[in-house]
Design a binder for these strands. Structure first.
Lengths: 157, 157
DNA sequence: GTATATTAGGTGCGGGCGCACCTATCTGTC
DNA sequence: GACAGATAGGTGCGCCCGCACCTAATATAC
């Protein structure tokens, strides 16, 4: 005996639905996204994200450390991503004049063109598989929830 | 010239808040979770998940393919996870009598004990960093949203 | 000034995992 | 029965990335 009642502490069904659902949705979407970007553009999602953030930046350039902050990768990971992107001509590296330890990653015209192609299909995919399932009010609600998670002080509802 | 207006097609701010927030929250939480499980139990999150699902299963055993389905890993990945868990005595492998191609991964008593330790702290962490920021009604709403994403036919609100 | 601590970026090493492929087995057709 | 195709699980190869560490440069203390 002592075979049943071997249960372990666990999430409640409510918690499991919310947390497990997040994990599941993220996993499935990321798999689709990686596959899509690889097929259409031969780049990974982290590479895509670096290109995108460079396109947003003033002068289409960012310091490596700033790319690493708020990325899923560490500085060493970003360093290698930039190296790969440079090898195929989508970005170039330039030493920073104001701090000669540092370096900029700069989006090339080829990189911008590639990003446009990548982003077009990417937006279609993410909308079809995720965003279009929600109304504007719901998207706003969701964004507010994420902000609540990010900011520990924002516990007030 | 032709320097500005080099913008690319992109998500709306509303969409970026919802989709980017999901990516950010997932990334940050996963980093914390991986770190926590590694420090306290020397296991990764995928290893933890395999132990957890085995503990749920009838007879604390599952086929490798069933573990792979609804996992973030492929069959080969699961195969290696089970190999690692077997090497440290948390699971054992057993050939399936009803289909001699197949194999079961079976949670050992040591595996169950480890899972209890891992899960206790894990639940505390996920609640503190995520679940406790929402009320029961909100958790229910969130779970419903994830179901809506998973099921393409469930587009009706 | 010099000495020390900190920081930016890069790299050798090791581990994890997907892809393609292998073997063994099961299933279906004849 | 024989045989083709599908399926379960495992594995060699290659890629990716975190960790620890390195070098060069900057910031701080004295």
């Amino acid at each position: 005996m002592a075979d049943h009642e071997d249960r372990v502490a666990d999430f409640t069904p409510l918690e499991a639905g919310a947390w497990g659902g997040l994990l599941g949705v993220h996993g499935r979407l990321m798999r689709l996204i990686e596959q899509d970007l690889a097929e259409r553009c031969r780049i990974s999602h982290v590479e895509f994200e670096v290109l995108l953030r460079l396109s947003w930046a003033e002068g289409r350039r960012m310091r490596i450390q700033d790319l690493a902050a708020d990325s899923v990768l560490t500085r060493s990971g970003i360093s290698r991503v930039v190296e790969r992107l440079e090898r195929v001509g989508l970005v170039i590296r330039e030493s920073a004049p104001e701090d000669r330890r540092g370096a900029y990653a700069i989006l090339t015209d080829a990189g911008l063109a590639m990003l446009r192609t990548a982003l077009d299909g990417h937006v279609v995919l993410v909308r079809a598989r995720f965003l279009d399932r929600f109304g504007p009010d719901e998207l706003e609600q969701m964004a507010a929830w994420w902000r609540r998670v990010e900011d520990p002080d924002d516990m007030a509802r």
